[in-house]
């Protein structure tokens, strides 16, 4: 075996455990799900093996699924926008802070030490009828009766922002931290104000991080089902809730499989578009 051949093989040998794990734990289950999506649920709840297009026809043509999918994308988009608006200043502050950067990053990571469900449920104690905000409002005499704030689309978005904001801040921080600050100084020395230097130098250079954070927030937000379950009202379901219902409540694994692949395809398409224009390298940097 020539040296070139051996060198060409080496990365694959090193990668083989990871590739094997991805193949076994991701692609094989995905194939199972794809196969399942062509089966049918019988009246008793048992699966009918075969090749039927009924689930796909229903998932793709029924406006119920289309509407919930669009609503899910809308909620994910609003969440991403709010995360960007709130996360950028925080990331900028951390990146430009001197000395206490590590402490600030640690504070940013602290919420991850608490269960996501507990973090979500904590809003009930904050915004509930007998929660902290209402206690304050009634105590100060601002309102006479507690205000109903929970269980609507706004609280779903609030819960998602709470969950996803650290992902945005981290990605933007990584991007900002890699920008040479002397570039801003150079812009200032050429007559630009601080605001102009930020708009024309720092912001464009940090856009890849913003986009990576946005992609993560969007994909994670669109795939969630706990937040609408805990903080949403009767009509605030998202697409993942439909998958949950099909598989768990209705025991319709074939339809649930088709729906989950549909969501995967939509979110996968977004990732591909991102990769086409910005590349995955920035995302990996943010995740790392």
């Amino acid at each position: 075996m020539s040296v070139e051949t051996r060198e060409a093989r080496q990365p694959w040998i090193l990668l083989s455990p990871a590739l094997g794990a991805v193949a076994l734990l991701l692609f094989v289950p995905l194939v199972f799900i794809a196969v399942y999506s062509f089966w049918l649920r019988t009246a008793t709840g048992a699966d009918q093996v075969g090749f039927f297009l009924d689930n796909w026809a229903e998932a793709l043509t029924d406006e119920f699924y289309r509407d919930i999918l669009l609503n899910t994308l809308k909620i994910a988009a609003i969440t991403t926008l709010v995360c960007a608006l709130m996360g950028y200043p925080a990331a900028y502050f951390i990146a430009r802070s001197k000395g206490n950067k590590a402490v600030l990053l640690l504070l940013l990571m602290l919420p991850f030490w608490i269960s996501y469900i507990i973090r979500t449920m904590s809003w009930i104690n904050i915004l509930g009828v007998s929660g902290a905000v209402n206690w304050l409002l009634t105590g100060l005499g601002i309102v006479s009766e507690p205000v109903q704030m929970l269980y609507n689309e706004t609280t779903v978005i609030l819960g998602l922002v709470h969950f996803l904001l650290p992902f945005m801040v981290l990605n933007v921080f990584v991007s900002l931290d890699g920008i040479d600050t002397t570039l801003e100084d150079a812009a200032n020395s050429l007559g630009a104000t601080k605001w102009q230097a930020f708009l024309q130098v720092t912001l464009p250079l940090s856009l890849p991080g913003l986009a990576a954070g946005g992609l993560l927030c969007f994909v994670l937000g669109a795939g969630t089902y706990i937040t609408p379950l805990v903080l949403g009202g009767p009509t605030d379901a998202m697409f993942a809730n439909l998958v949950f219902e099909a598989i768990i409540t209705q025991l319709n694994w074939p339809l649930g499989s088709a729906l989950s692949l549909m969501l995967l395809a939509v979110l996968g398409a977004l990732v591909l578009i991102y990769n086409r224009y910005l590349g995955m390298a920035q995302l990996m940097k943010g995740l790392g």
Partner: peptide, 16 residues
């Protein structure tokens, strides 16, 4: 006997 039909319909009615 109604499970398949009614549980599915309820899933929709529930969501508006």
């Amino acid at each position: 006997s109604k499970e398949a039909e009614w549980s599915k319909t309820f899933g929709r009615v529930q969501k508006g």
